[in-house]
Structures are given as C-alpha cells and as structure tokens.
C-alpha cells in the first residue's frame, strides 16, 4: 500500500518559494483504484511525481510497501505518451526491463504479452510516429505494465485524446485493472472520468493544494457512464467542489 504522511512540497527558484502541496496525507490500500481530482495547477501532477520518487517532498514522508523485492515498485504513464521515437513499439514496451535481469528473448516475450493486454498485438515492429494518439497511449500503458509494478501512476493519461478514444481506453483500463489488480493512482481534472473509473476519488483544491474531499464509490464494475448512482455521485461531487470555490 501507499502511504503519504503530511506531505508538503515547496519549490525554490531564484530566491522565491512556491508552496505546491501542504500537509497532504493519504493511504491507498493495495489493489485500489484511486482518482486524484482537481483543476489545473493544484499540484496533482506534483503529487504523482512525489509518489514516483521523481520529486523529493520538502515535508512529510511517502512510503510504498511492496511485498516483493522489485527494482521498480511504481510505474508511470504520462499525459503525452512519451515514447522514445527511435525505438520500435516492442523496444519501447521493454524499456523498463533493461536493468540487466531479463534476457533479450524474455524482454521480447514480455513486450508481446503486454501489447496483447492493451490490444496492440502485431504492432511490435512499428515505430511511434506510425501510431495514432490512442495507440501511443496504449503502448505507454503496456510499457508501465511490463515492469510488473505494484502501483500504476497515471498522469491525466487520456486528457489529450478524442472523446471516443478516451472512453475506449477508460474501459480498457478498467478491464486491465480487474485482470491485474494493480493499485492505481489516476490524476484527472474530469469529475466524470474520476467517478466512472475509481474506487475512491480524492479531490485537491487551492494553492497550495490540499485535500478538499474524499469519497468512495461503491458501485460495482462494470459500470455504465449514464448509470444513475454514477451520475448522482458526480453531480454531488461537482456541487461540493463548487461550494469550495474549486473548479
């Protein structure tokens, strides 16, 4: 599980201090799908980078309890697919496996298996510029899954996609989460997306960003987008965030 205790982060640049996160605590049990919701600039992405270990918190602590001894307990999916353009799709997927323990053959097998999981079998030898935006994001997801992380960190992964592709990928993610039971931290600014996907929605608001609301969505999967309890939760959350003066 992931545990954030009183995490704060202040950037210092040119003698000026910008406080991005203040006193943020959160416990995410294993296998849980948690959406982190908030408008732009409240430090959602920063929070994700703190969990990923890309940024060091200036206050508090982050612990990720992992039951196995893994080189990479967390893996990240960025908003832009961020594929390496000089690598084939398969070599992009096996990027995180190049830490020395897997042979080339094993890496290729693993890449193919992951591409199958995200619905891109047969795309191994393509190059990123030959793919659509949605396909690139699938490759990025396969790359993250390939390292078999305990935690999947996703930074608005579908925000740049068209609506139809976005809904398809949301459903794929729900299926993959069901099949792999990874813990997922999913950053989004879309209330509907958060409520449709997640077990828990954590809303962040204000500058510096602080916990504004936390709700649990009991509706079992598979869910429908227009299902009454889903839309009601979304409407209720929207009301609460409006009262807070959020988005």
């Amino acid at each position: 599980m992931i545990s954030l205790k009183h995490v704060g982060l202040t950037f210092h640049r040119d003698g000026e201090a910008t406080e991005v996160l203040r006193d943020f605590s959160l416990d995410v049990p294993k296998g849980r799908f948690v959406a982190i919701l908030g408008p732009s600039g409240v430090g959602k992405s920063t929070l994700l980078r703190v969990v990923a270990g890309l940024l060091k918190p200036t206050a508090g602590a982050v612990t990720i309890a992992t039951d196995r001894n893994k080189p990479l307990p967390v893996a990240m999916v960025f908003q832009d697919a961020r594929l390496l353009p000089w690598r084939s799709v398969a070599d992009n997927v096996s990027f995180g496996l190049e830490h020395g323990q897997a042979s080339g053959h094993e890496r290729r097998e693993r890449a193919s298996a992951m591409l199958g999981l995200v619905g891109l079998s047969g795309y191994e030898s393509r190059y990123p510029h030959e793919l659509s935006g949605g396909q690139r994001q699938r490759v990025a997801l396969a790359r993250a899954l390939a390292v078999d992380p305990d935690v999947l960190l996703m930074d608005e992964p579908f925000a740049a996609l068209d609506a139809i592709t976005r809904e398809t990928l949301q459903d794929e993610l729900v299926r993959i989460h069901g099949e792999t039971s990874k813990t997922v931290l999913f950053v989004t600014h879309s209330i509907d997306e958060a409520v449709y996907l997640a077990d828990d929605v954590i809303a962040i608001a204000g500058r510096p960003g602080r916990l504004a609301a936390a709700i649990t969505i009991e509706t079992p999967r598979p869910r429908q987008r227009n299902q009454q309890d889903i839309t009601e939760v979304a409407a209720d959350l929207r009301r609460r965030l409006d009262e807070l003066g959020g988005s």
């Binding site: 990923a52 890309l54 080189p71 990479l72 893996a75 990240m76 960025f78 832009d80 961020r82 390496l84 990027f95 995180g96 190049e98 830490h99 790359r143 390292v147």
Partner: peptide, 22 residues
C-alpha cells in the same frame, strides 16, 4: 527534458544510463 524524466521514472537515474538510454 521530459524524455530524461522518463528515464528517471523507469529507474535509469545514473548519468551513464541516461546517456545511453535517452
């Protein structure tokens, strides 16, 4: 810079790893 962050995110944190991978 984002590709270098990618290398970081996938555990390639040493300078020589960033050099060869990205």
């Amino acid at each position: 810079r984002e590709l270098i962050e990618l290398a970081d995110a996938f555990g390639f944190r040493r300078a020589h790893q960033k050099l060869t991978k990205v």
